[in-house]
Simulated scan of single mutants.
Amino acid sequence: MPMYEAIEKAIKKMQAAQAQLAEKLDIPAIEALIIVLEALNRQNDDAFNELDQADRKFIRQTLKESDFNTLTPEQKRQVLQLVLVATMQEDKLQGNYQVTPDAIGMWVTFFVEAFLNPQQTSQVLDITVGSGNLLATVNLALQQRGDTTTYYGVENDDTLITIASGVAALLGLDWQLDHQDALADTPDLSDKMDVVVADLPVGYYPKELDAGYQTVVEDGLTHVHHLLIEKVMETLRPGGLGLLIVPAHLFESEQAPQLLKYFQNDGIYFQGFIQFSDKLFLDKQASKALLLVQKPGADAVQAEPVMLAKAPDVGQKEENLNFVNQMQTWLSDNYLSH
């Protein structure tokens, strides 16, 4: 069976089981998906056991017919991503629940692979791991390359971290996941991470924070993504790299001066800012960019020039090839690749 047909079949069967669960148990699609992931992981769920025998048999048989376990890890990731995207749309979940698209994940992965030395043991953190698609994309690519890496994920939403845990288990990935608020009570990962990736949530942080965050504004609430950028820099080892998906207008907001002041005060190396095609976003105001920031120390230097660019559309094959070549030269020139 061609790859796309196998993926399509798995998606349809999983969605059929999910729909049956949502209807019979009268629960949202996202909760039904958690039960599907548990069933695929051969775990019993109390809610599943409430179903009558005929419904349980239908769901087990449907998931068996999905042939999910015969797929490659990357095919499994694609299936899970597409089912997640459909689930988010069905439940009309807020923007911060959205899955990081592959067109963005591939660029994050490109820079991670360039930066990390495959001959050395590395530590990678996703500080807002969500449903786990971005970390899975990076993990599978490094695994295929043969890297020895420890993966960490932090997430404050219990539904999302439950999904991330299920995704990791189904893909055979070993992640150290913490269900915590990364800003308030994250475990001590200070000065340890070689790379931190994140698709940062956008909005205002609603809680009072302990003194010490330089990006906090004096009046009103602070942008949560500014605070998380500061937290990311704390977790990186000297010379470590942050690859953070941020609003494309990051440096145009009224709080941008506070963020830039923090960069200056701590000597943070602002290495690059790569905007993604507007076509990836339904609302141009919600467009994103990839921020490359490096912690001073080790062999880190300020990039010359800072990489300010716009990534080509996914379908522009020649432009993407040229862009990759341009990036590889820039990374090499600025000691950001191995």
Rank of each mutant, 00 (worst) to 15 (best):
V108Y: 04
V129I: 11
T137A: 15
V112W: 02
V124D: 01
W107T: 07
Q143D: 09
R145S: 10
A136F: 00
T109G: 14
I127C: 13
G130D: 15
M106N: 05
Q119F: 12
V108Q: 08
L116R: 03
Q144E: 15
F110D: 03
D147S: 14
Q144L: 15
N117G: 07
Q120S: 07
D147Y: 15
Q143M: 03
N139D: 15
F110Y: 11
Q123K: 07
L134I: 05
N117S: 15
T148P: 01
N139R: 01
A114C: 09
P118W: 04
R145Y: 06
S122T: 08
F111K: 03
Q123A: 09
L135Y: 09
W107Y: 15
Q123I: 09
R145F: 02
L116I: 12
L135S: 05
T128W: 01
T109W: 05
L142Y: 00
V108A: 13
N139H: 14
V129L: 05
N139M: 08
V138I: 07
V108T: 15
G132K: 03
L134E: 01
I127N: 14
I127D: 02
M106K: 15
V138S: 06
T148L: 08
I127H: 07
T121A: 14
F110P: 00
L140K: 10
F110S: 02
R145K: 15
G130S: 12
S131Y: 10
V124Q: 01
T121Q: 04
N133M: 14
S131K: 10
V129E: 02
F115P: 04
N133H: 13
D126W: 03
T137F: 01
Q123E: 15
T121D: 14
S131C: 11
A141T: 06
L142Q: 10
V112F: 07
Q120K: 10
L116T: 09
F111E: 05
A141M: 06
D126F: 07
G146C: 12
T137P: 00
T109M: 10
M106Y: 06
F115K: 11
P118I: 11
T137K: 04
F110L: 10
F110H: 14
L134T: 04
Q144K: 15
L135D: 13
Q123N: 13
Q144W: 00
A141L: 04
F111I: 12
V138E: 03
T128H: 02
F110T: 12
T137V: 07
D126Y: 11
Q144H: 09
W107H: 08
F111P: 02
W107S: 09
T137R: 01
P118V: 09
S122F: 02
V124W: 00
A114E: 14
E113N: 06
Q120P: 00
W107Q: 07
Q123G: 04
F115Y: 13
L134G: 08
A136S: 09
D126V: 11
A141K: 03
T128M: 03
L142H: 04
L134Q: 05
A141W: 00
G132R: 08
N133L: 05
G132A: 08
